[in-house]
């Protein structure tokens, strides 16, 4: 199985996020075709309506588009769009909670910055 589903979110959202991750990782490039609804359905053992719902989320966001009779393709500019969306989420999901936790256990700003620098060195 290519996608391991977790219990935390609805499956259609996890399908959309999997495609987003694959685009961000360069596995699907702009103007490249992604797997069909049927392929997602059979490979992931999910109802095609669920796969369609996930893919439609990305169509609405302008990440994917449909070529009539051919299938779904990654839109031009999708990578940049996703990167800025994820950057925004990075602030919400990581930085805000990092600052909150740091305040809770009394780590000051300079210490955090040092830690971040250490993190980059060790990566």
């Amino acid at each position: 199985m290519f996608i391991e589903f977790s219990d935390e979110k609805p499956i259609f959202i996890q399908i959309a996020e999997w495609i987003e991750d694959a685009i961000l990782a360069g596995r699907y490039e702009e103007e490249q075709q992604i797997p069909s609804i049927t392929e997602f359905s059979v490979a992931c053992k999910i109802n095609p309506a669920t796969a369609l719902k996930g893919i439609n989320l990305l169509v609405d966001d302008g990440i994917l588009y449909k070529k009539r009779g051919l299938g779904m393709f990654v839109a031009k500019g999708a990578y940049e769009k996703l990167r800025s969306k994820r950057k925004e989420m990075f602030y919400e999901n990581f930085i805000l909670s990092l600052v909150k936790e740091a305040k809770r256990i009394n780590i000051d700003k300079n210490d955090i910055i040092k830690m971040i620098e250490r993190g980059f060195e060790n990566d």
Binding site: I37, T38, S41, V42, A43, K45, I46, N47, P48
Partner: peptide, 13 residues
């Protein structure tokens, strides 16, 4: 069981 669910979805597709 895994294969049968996939076959069902494949026939349905």
């Amino acid at each position: 069981r895994d294969l049968l669910y996939k076959v069902i979805l494949d026939r349905y597709a």
